[in-house]
Simulated assay, not measured.
Amino acid sequence: MGKPDAEGHDLPDLPPEWGRVVVPDDASALAAEAAQIRRELRRAAGRPGGHRALALPLFVLLVALLTTLGGVLAVTWPRANRGNDRPTPAPYAPPATLAGRSLPALDLVDAGQSPVPLRGLLPAMIILVDGCPCQDRVAEAVAAAPGGVAVVTVAGGRTVAARPPAEPAVRALADPAGGLRSFLGEPARPGTATALLVDRAGVVTRVLPELGPADAYREDLTALAR
């Protein structure tokens, strides 16, 4: 039975009397042996019986050449399941739809670490800023929010995010337990704020995986005031 190569593929055994056979990485390393064979063949052509005298050593060298080529091909042939292949990173998937689900009864904290029931602020646009403060986007949301609809920013940990300049209407909270992010079902992404629109009954009406310009959600925001 043959001996396995570096990747576990069997190569044929050679007769033990041939000694140790070194398989080069590049088949061109056998060019000198091939040239020697051609010279010997030319000499043998001029001698009676020369071909028979060279038959065995030429056969041995031919087998060695074929074995070498087979080994090189076995090592270099591309395979689909090489162990060092890296999986292709999965693209970001937006949160599964939460529309129609009830917002859980979460207690967040304010700047003074006092508990604040999140459902007590509804209807609201809740903006998770644990991946990005995104103050410009928050300011746009405040400007677009109709009367009676709160804009709430939620940071991770216990540190409350700073309000945008001249936007005292923003209710800034923190989520030490990470309950809101867990409800969303997606980790924070650097440079991205995520928003949930929740009506006065506590039902999520829309999820914005990446908060953009207010025109993209203005109508949904206005509907929360009804």
Rank of each mutant, 00 (worst) to 15 (best):
V142F: 03
P57T: 01
P164V: 01
R226F: 10
V198M: 13
S102T: 12
S182P: 11
E140W: 01
T222A: 15
L65G: 03
P16H: 08
A193P: 15
A53S: 10
P87W: 02
V207D: 08
L98S: 03
P95S: 01
A27H: 02
G70S: 11
G185V: 15
G148R: 05
E186Y: 08
R163N: 13
R206K: 09
D215N: 06
A53Q: 13
D10R: 01
D110A: 03
A44T: 07
A124V: 13
V75C: 10
A111T: 12
A216N: 06
A124P: 11
L184R: 06
R101Q: 06
P91H: 01
A99E: 14
T159Y: 00
L61E: 12
L56D: 05
V109R: 03
V60F: 05
G202N: 07
L208N: 09
P4K: 11
V116R: 10
G202H: 00
R218K: 07
G212L: 07
F59E: 05
R158F: 08
G49V: 14
A169V: 09
A139I: 02
G83N: 12
A96K: 02
R82H: 02
S102H: 08
A161Y: 04
P176L: 04
V129Y: 04
D199A: 01
M1I: 12
A169C: 04
P15G: 06
G156A: 15
P87Y: 00
A169N: 00
V203R: 06
V151H: 03
R200Q: 14
S114F: 07
A80F: 00
P133L: 04
E186G: 10
G147Y: 00
P57H: 01
R39S: 09
E186S: 03
P95H: 02
P133H: 07
A214F: 07
I37K: 05
A111E: 15
I126T: 07
G212Y: 09
E33S: 15
A139V: 06
L122K: 04
A145H: 12
A64K: 14
P87M: 11
A193G: 09
L66R: 09
H9S: 14
A169Q: 05
G120C: 13
L103F: 00
R218I: 07
